[in-house]
Simulated assay, not measured.
Amino acid sequence: MKNTGFVRDVHLAIEQVEREAWFDMYAAAPAAIVQRTNIAFRRLGTAIGLADRGTPIAEFNRVLGLGIDEPASEDELERAIAWMKEHAVPSHALQLAPTARPEGLPQSLEARGYRRTGNGWAKYYRDASPAEGHPIPTALEVKLVRPEDAAHFGQVVQAGFGLPAAVADWQSALVGRPKWNVYAAYDGGVPVACGAMFIDGGWAWLGVDATLAEYRGRGAQNALIERRIADGIAAGVSGFTAETGQPSEGEERKNKSYGNYHRAGFTRLYVRPNYVLPQA
C-alpha cells in the first residue's frame, strides 16, 4: 500500500465486504430460528444493525459500517441507536473504524452515553499473492462443505465457540448460499474445525473460524486460511480481509487467531473500537 488514496480505498473495501457478509449471514437465518431467538437485522443508512438476543455477545449485537461510505448524520446516528435499543441486547456495540466520518463521531457517541470498551478488533488486509504453506502441514483434511453435509459446519461453529444450540442450524444455512464458500477440517470423517469465505465485489471476507477444543493446536486454522486464500485467488479475488480481537499489549503471541492471520501474510491495518453503554 504505497499511497494514501490506495490505503483509503482498502479501508473502505474491507469494511464494506465485512458489512455485507454479516448482513447476508443474518438474511440466511431460517425463519423458525428468527422467531425463536428474536434475530433482527436492518440497513441503517449505509450502516447495518445486527441483533440476536439469543446470543448476547457483541459480535451478534452491533452496528457495523457507520460513517464509512459517507459521513453519518445525527439523524442516522439517532436511528441506529434507537433500533439497537429496541432489538439488541443492552450490551450491544457500535463499532467505529478510524476512517468513519465525521471526525467527531466518537464524541457524538460519548455524548449519548456510549463509552469505548475493551481492546477493540484488529482488522486485517492481505493482497491476492499466493499463500506460503505452513512449515508443519496438518494431518487434518480441509474440504469445501457440501449441502448434504451442511450440519457439519453448523455443529462445529456452535460447539467451537460455545454458542446457543440454535446457532448450529443458522450457520448450516450458509452452506451452498451464493457468495459463500464454507469449509471444514476433518479428522477422518469427523468435522473438527471450520471457516467461511464471503466474496463480494472482488473482495473476500474470512471469518467464522472455529475449532473444537480437543483439536486446537493441530494446524486446522492455518490450513483453512490457506485453502480459502487459494480458492479466493482462483475466483478472481483482489484482496482479503479478516478480523480478530485485539490482544493486550505484549500478549499478541498468546492469541492463536492473531498469530494465524499474521503467519498467512495478513497485515493489521487498524484497530476498530467498540462503543458500549455501561451496564448498571
Results as ranks from 00 to 15, higher is better:
22 W>P: 00
22 W>N: 06
23 F>D: 02
23 F>K: 03
24 D>Y: 09
24 D>K: 00
25 M>V: 05
25 M>I: 10
25 M>F: 08
25 M>P: 00
26 Y>K: 07
26 Y>P: 10
27 A>L: 14
27 A>R: 15
29 A>P: 01
30 P>A: 08
30 P>D: 03
30 P>W: 00
30 P>H: 03
31 A>P: 04
31 A>M: 09
31 A>T: 08
32 A>T: 08
32 A>D: 07
32 A>Q: 05
33 I>E: 12
33 I>M: 08
33 I>N: 05
33 I>F: 06
34 V>R: 13
34 V>G: 04
35 Q>F: 10
35 Q>R: 15
35 Q>C: 12
35 Q>E: 15
36 R>H: 13
36 R>L: 11
36 R>V: 03
38 N>F: 06
38 N>C: 08
39 I>L: 15
40 A>N: 09
40 A>M: 00
40 A>E: 13
41 F>S: 15
41 F>E: 07
42 R>W: 02
42 R>G: 02
42 R>L: 04
43 R>I: 00
43 R>V: 01
43 R>L: 03
44 L>E: 02
44 L>K: 04
45 G>T: 09
45 G>H: 13
46 T>P: 00
46 T>I: 01
46 T>N: 09
47 A>Y: 02
47 A>K: 02
47 A>R: 00
47 A>I: 04
47 A>T: 07
47 A>G: 09
48 I>A: 05
49 G>V: 10
50 L>Y: 12
50 L>H: 08
50 L>M: 13
50 L>I: 08
50 L>Q: 10
51 A>W: 04
52 D>A: 14
52 D>C: 13
53 R>H: 05
53 R>P: 04
54 G>N: 12
55 T>I: 12
55 T>S: 14
55 T>Q: 08
56 P>F: 10
